[in-house]
Amino acid sequence: MSSLVVENLSIEFGGVRAVDSVSFEVEPGETFAIIGPNGAGKSTIFNLISRIYEPTGGSIHYGERSLLDVPAHRVVDLGIARTFQNIDLFEQATVLQNLLVGRHSRMSRNLARDFLFVAGARSREREHRRKVEDIIDLLEIAQYRDQRISDLPYGARKNVELARALCAEPTLLLLDEPASGLNQEETDDVSFWLDDIKHDLGVTLVMVEHDMGLVGRVADRVMAINDGKLLAIGTPEEVRADPAVQQAYLGTVA
């Protein structure tokens, strides 16, 4: 099992330091939450880890590997999958197709072989379909299997996006606001699933979340940032009690 080690990570957008020398470490099997006010730089940290943005300084390591040596489409090969804050699914494809793309990094593919659907293609498809069905059962989205994403309600999309990330069989999962836009009941479901993902699948979780109730329930450790700078790292209680954090939230987290 590998740990995620981020050291002095920085990025500037036109002179604005969106992430300013942030360091943290996530242990294998841990659930780590990142909190902070809007525009604090939380999603930007995720985008740096998934190599969408090039940092202006610092390093990111997952296990032995330096992520900065890896192009964006190879990050998942190291076992890192993610979801997006504004749900980013393949809109015109079905749920099943979305989930099968989730298995892309695990499937051998070759244009000529796929065009001819040569011997072995069918058994390969079946085998990956079996893995996909396990995830469908876990997240209870069987009823949506053949629907197009554009026909799904918001809550179902959230689940499908989580499922798609799980299909890659990650060891580290980055979740950008898994409960945003969900009602209380749906948020409770999410917290149960996160527990399952953590305990049954043994996945390390890093999540950005505004819902402090959810954070308190599932996170082992919390990191608070503001204006791209680290404010505090510790258990949920410690971070909540931190004066700098309370200052940043101006009382919104009491």
Partner: peptide, 12 residues
């Protein structure tokens, strides 16, 4: 076609 960003994050 539907999302280059997601595609990339899944290894495409």
């Amino acid at each position: 076609r539907d999302s280059e960003l997601s595609a990339r994050s899944l290894g495409v």
